[in-house]
Amino acid sequence: MATYSTSEFKGGLKIMLDDAPCSIMENEFVRPGKGPAFSRVKIRNLKTGRVIERTFKSGESVEAADVMETEMSYLYNDGDFWYFMDDETYEQVSGDATAVGDAAKWIKDQDKCTVTLWNGAPLLVTAPNFVELEVTDTDPGLKGDTSGGGGKPATLETGAVVRIPLFVQIGEVIKVDTRTGEYSARVKN
């Protein structure tokens, strides 16, 4: 079992805490007055996304988490699971709705996603920052401003709903920023 000592703690290190895989965000060495040295560590629970602050006695060791981030291609969804493939090894993994989370509404086959694997299984799936999706439904009657304004709701091919400018019509492809869920640009065919 691999372990890390507090002196090795740094941002990005993956450790096990309370039986959950976590990522260290910040580590600060503290030696109060004349008191005992410890590390004050900000940690993100990779399962729940929750950020907590904990302290560790200096020199204490904690178990390393077998967590790695890898780029994978999204293949398909069979209703319960989403399947991803490593483009180099052709190895396939599947993740449930909890792991895929919000990414589910943005991705379509062949999209390159960042998959965080814990003990080989997807823990977290992050969609590409930008995806290009076809507008499958929106109100065609609304015309007017070509810039700014309120826009109108549109349903995309993956089922996601975003606000788009009034001039964009059904069948057109748009670019969406998946981090904010906002329309970014129209893609010329």
Binding site: G35, P36, F38, I52, F56, K57
Partner: peptide, 24 residues
């Protein structure tokens, strides 16, 4: 305050406990 691990750090020393609480 969310630091149940404090007693591992401070051992059985009152001064350590005071220093820990003060610094945290």
């Amino acid at each position: 305050q969310g630091n149940p691990e404090a007693s591992d750090i401070c051992g059985n020393h009152l001064a350590n406990g005071l220093d820990y609480v003060f610094s945290q």
